[in-house]
Design a protein around this nucleic acid. Sequence first.
DNA 1: CTCCTATGATTGACACGTCAACCACAGGGG
DNA 2: CCCCTGTGGTTGACGTGTCAATCATAGGAG
Lengths: 153, 153
Amino acid sequence: MPGSRRLPSRPELDVWRDFIETTEALRTRIGGRLLHDTGLSTGDYTVLLALSEAPGRRVRSSELAAGIGWERSRLSHHLARMERRDLITREGHTTDSRGAVVVLAPAGAAAFQAATVPHLRAVRELFVDALTPAQLTAAGEIAAALREHLRLP
Amino acid sequence: MPGSRRLPSRPELDVWRDFIETTEALRTRIGGRLLHDTGLSTGDYTVLLALSEAPGRRVRSSELAAGIGWERSRLSHHLARMERRDLITREGHTTDSRGAVVVLAPAGAAAFQAATVPHLRAVRELFVDALTPAQLTAAGEIAAALREHLRLP
DNA sequence: CTCCTATGATTGACACGTCAACCACAGGGG
DNA sequence: CCCCTGTGGTTGACGTGTCAATCATAGGAG
């Protein structure tokens, strides 16, 4: 069909650019605030959140990667940096000697604890408060539609 | 007022996470496609687009940075990489000897020319086609509201 | 038991972004 | 004319992300 080769119209392209630039700016703004206020990057926060919710505050590396939707390589690099800062430690898996287990370190737990309220407050201030309830709902639906279209889990 | 310290509710937080993760995935998907299909990153594309629209296909560096909303440092690093690949060249400014002028090189013009249709097609397929017309409109309004709230230009 | 393949995880190379430091010059006071 | 402050631009250090290569081991076919 000819429609399959159609290019976006001017207004469609404007929405695209505005949408992608604004979400990018929002991400960097909230990430910057988190880093500035707490010393944690959003990556750190994501990892620490997953760890702090895990039973025993320990998770197998591959499960952690799957849980937060990261590639193993990315996680491995990030964990190396976090280990250097004593936020986490790594242990070998007891039964599967290929496996690595990530353990939440005391400093990591403390940093996460201290970061959560400021971060949630920033999310409310910069995202939730910017939108009307209807817009918030629409944002959820748009995300769902995009996600579906991208065939994301 | 007490409301100023309120944290996001569960559903609000779910929307936030879904929204931010999905837009991130969308960006990397479209960026990855562009890079794979044309050898240009989204940063390259942004710079080349601005350059190809400029009179004489040349722009003063600081104006380019302002035009695409980048920090000067970021642009400087990126231009260095693009110059290495012969996509652009840099010349001194004629009257203000502090200034640098970025010039679109033939290879850059050709690469941009070749990239534009595939990229716009990807935008249509992965973004425009994923949304109903009403959702597209809503996306524009959400972006505008967020942008306003962030006090972006 | 012995291969053979698949999986878990790490590493190296490189692109990208931010921050802070830096250098050079423009554009005025004095 | 000389200094002094502000602006344009680059650089270095470092955190981050992707890709491809690598390595060790698990787990099953034979």
